[in-house]
Write a protein that binds this DNA or RNA. Structure first.
Lengths: 340, 340
DNA sequence: TCGATTCCGCGAATCGGTTCGACAGAACAT
DNA sequence: ATGTTCTGTCGAACCGATTCGCGGAATCGA
């Protein structure tokens, strides 16, 4: 059922139906009523492809996610959910594209086939060819995360550098002298994953500033890796009394590793991290952490993207989240080897 | 850059460019080479909307997910990931639509606006108006889950009835006499969530068959609810020695509740469930469970959908997964009040 | 050498919308 | 009565691809 059919049954021309629907020109109430009656009866909706073709926009945004094979973390999932939600509120549809590895056909299809009006890019690296690709194509886009030259694009991001520094200061304030940073998985950090590098940098600076001794390790994004990682850390660095981490998926395993080693949290050992609130609260003991407002950020990213689509030459905008640390149950005064 | 531009620069007509690209009519190698050269130089890709309009298909499938506000379980997430992955392999894009609650505009847009060639529906209820809506619209669709009249549509599903029955039999074999079923959250079950009801049914039959005493409760889909639920169960039914559950998100909390009550798993108390393998293995102790092949199922759903799109009048096909129970560390012989 | 066949490429129609220019008729001012 | 302004509607062009029918040139067989 197309617009011609509606027009015929309502006894008007196709253009009149179009104007009645879009309201871009006045149509008499009587005509409008007749058209609406036919539309309701037939359940007509304009064909999205035809409209996209003529209007030059698709009312769809692309969301580029890490390939599904590598499991999404809870935080990433929250980003996806909040982006989809915010887009739906703005009457935009969301086209999903796994990128990286073998799936780059999907990314290309979306970008050069003009399937979307704009793109939200997740899991951005310090040097990211997709950013170059998008900029070259002229398609509006917003990053969740930023590259090494952040002024060149619009983004929302978490200030891991500041947050991890805060974590270290928090631990130092509690008297801890030997602390470790547990990063995300080694491959990710190796290919230039921004949060990993920025967390390192924040950790190093804060450790130096407070005169602490610090170790850094990468750790797979799951509980088993977390456990193994902690066990190895304890074996190699017996003096450690605290961990700061951005690897939320591994925290449960870290708890397990500590408990196996006979260390109670927070009595004997402290952990502080960066994580989504509901995740931190669900752990046992609840994790003292900077609460990443992941759902807000997804919504904010959509908002930025809508603005960029509406006004491409406008200057880039950024949003760097640095939420305060919420004290929960996982940090306490240093005991083991600390100043007692 | 459209097909006309390519044609002009290559010195041929637009139709020749089209035929060179699709291969639907022979084009001389020399002409083909010239066209390809221009295309490579300009980085041209056909406009997806124009193609969709003419061809009558979008090369896109819709994936209808529960609204983002209610967090996706790990298993649901795995479905989504595997669907996206499988679709990408078939060169299909995936349009995400949160449905239910306030977001039904999105669902309507996708269905009646002909934005997609077919739909995969998640979180299906025993009576589901979306199924009626889709059937009425004539759009091909496949369910992950099934309604009360499963022969009317194509679907893949997990045989919760059989699986929970197996769980009960497994517990009975170990000597447990008093067992509980922990279901998904009460709202979901109340609105006719199929797995919830089928699990109940399987539980009741198996309990009756083995002459056990059984209690059933609903429980929120998170660790805290799991803990609260177990604590209440223990308070009210001190004779319980085992739990069967389909609520994977709550299992970690159940462990906590048991441990607080001084009950060790599996020595004093057994838990068996239905969950994704990596999830079951990540728990501590690892959960004895029927390993749901969620990624396979997503891929299978895509496969069924592709077939339905290609051949709509073909008979419906179904795929019911009933994986065996993998023995891990969370079940053992009955102790408390059992035959010692 | 003449027709038949094959090979290649062109022009035009088409998909289903939106949008622009034109215009009839009513309302209003002069 | 004449000109002007509005209102409401129509017809046609257009977006960028695909596809059908047609025809010119080359090849083939007789």
């Amino acid at each position: 059922m197309n617009i011609g059919e509606i027009a015929k049954r309502a006894g008007v021309s196709r253009s009149t139906v179009s104007y009645a629907l879009t309201g871009k020109r006045p149509v008499s109430v009587e005509t409008k009523r007749r058209i609406q009656a036919v539309i309701d009866e037939l359940g007509y909706r304009p064909n999205a492809a035809a409209r996209a073709l003529k209007e030059g926009r698709t009312r769809t945004i692309g969301l580029v996610i890490p390939p599904a094979s590598q499991r999404l973390t809870d935080m990433q999932l929250t980003f996806v959910a909040s982006v989809v939600d915010a887009a739906a509120r703005a009457d935009l549809d969301v086209l999903l594209s796994p990128s990286g590895g073998e799936h780059d056909r999907s990314f290309e299809r979306i970008v050069t086939g003009r399937r979307v009006d704009g793109v939200i890019l997740m899991e951005i690296r310090l040097e990211d060819e997709r950013v170059a690709r998008l900029r070259h194509s002229g398609l509006p886009f917003v990053g969740i995360g930023r590259t090494r030259r952040p002024e060149e694009m619009s983004w929302v991001d978490i200030d891991y550098e500041t947050l991890i520094a805060r974590c270290v200061h928090h631990l130092a304030d509690l008297g801890h002298r030997h602390v470790a940073l547990i990063n995300r998985n080694a491959e990710l950090v190796a290919v230039g994953y921004g949060p990993g590098h920025r967390a390192q940098s924040g950790f190093e600076h804060a450790v130096a500033e407070r005169g602490l001794s610090g170790v850094q390790v990468c750790c797979g994004d799951d509980a088993q890796s977390g456990q193994a990682c902690v066990e190895e850390l304890l074996a190699r660095h017996g003096e450690l009394t605290a961990i700061a981490t951005i690897n939320e998926a591994a925290v449960a395993g870290m708890y397990r590793g500590l408990s196996r080693a006979g260390l109670a949290v927070p009595r004997d050992f402290s952990i502080v991290g960066v994580a989504a609130r509901h995740w931190a609260e669900n752990l046992h003991p609840p994790l003292t952490a900077a609460d990443v407002p992941a759902d807000e950020m997804g919504a904010r990213a959509v908002e930025l993207l809508i603005q960029r689509i509406a006004d491409p030459p406008a200057p880039h905008r950024h949003h760097l989240a640095a939420p305060p640390i919420s004290l929960r149950g996982s940090t306490g005064p240093a005991r083991r080897g600390g100043p007692a």
